[in-house]
Amino acid sequence: MKNVVLRTNNLTKKYKDFVALNNINITINKGDIYGLIGKNGAGKTTLMKVITTLTKKTSGEFLLLGKTDDDLTLIKGRVGCLIENASFFPNLTAYDNLKYYAIQKGIVDVNQIDEVLNLVELSDEKHKKFKTFSLGMKQRLGIAYAILDNPDFIILDEPINGLDPIGISNLRDIFKRLNEEKNITILISSHILSELYMVANRFCFLEKGRVIKELTKSELDLECSKCLVIRTDDVKAACVVLERDLKTDNYKVISDNEIRLYDYLEHTDKVNKALIKKDINVMGLYETGITLEDYFKDLIKEVKCND
């Protein structure tokens, strides 16, 4: 059984009549880099704020590192956070800001401060005041704070916002190192799917406060890869044809009337003939293959249509 770091159960947050989070059910396992994707206002930050107790849930519950949400006192130190922008005391240096939090968290070994500053490549700037930092440096200091106490789980809200491409690439490497070398589980949000794709191994799509899709990286790859879309009113019979007549099991049933076939991309006519031969009503047969951004857009469109 996988070691669960975070599990939410019908987590809901309302601001008067506005539903910011609507019955969120997600599970993050140990070792995951869990990407939370959604447009601005989808509920990513609100979900993180509820988990970090910066705001109160309206209903539902969550389990964080084995503790229920009304009993988080003892595990707070095991969670590192960077919610929205990095916020520190502007007149203190990077080192002093981290020292302040090190004292607050009871960290005796001050070498840890140098270690994390080194990890985020801020060692040379550690004696500069926070107010003189660029946006990228501020974000990196925020990440240094999040990992200061060797947490088991870090929550990063849009950490790549406002960073240049090199900065983004560096941060990506840091996240991977933290995950692989220190076995830290990471929850990271962004509205840029292509960036999250390069770092996360599981994804959750949020829209209007709801989870619209939760999938692994390989599942996402499959969803976005080139395929033949078969639209039919008899999916079961179509599957039989694919396996018996076309000798392939490289397909996926998407819904009651849609199959995605990852073979025969150059031989659409063969597929069509095989299906018609067995009296299967083919309502559509076309090739598709979408980019991550298009996939994201399609998901959101689907939600809008269903609404």
Partner: peptide, 19 residues
């Protein structure tokens, strides 16, 4: 006040201690 104005209160409440 500085904790509220700098928003550094978020750091303390999210990963250090309870309200």
């Amino acid at each position: 006040c500085v904790d509220f104005s700098n928003k550094s209160i978020k750091n303390t409440l999210s990963s250090a201690i309870t309200r």
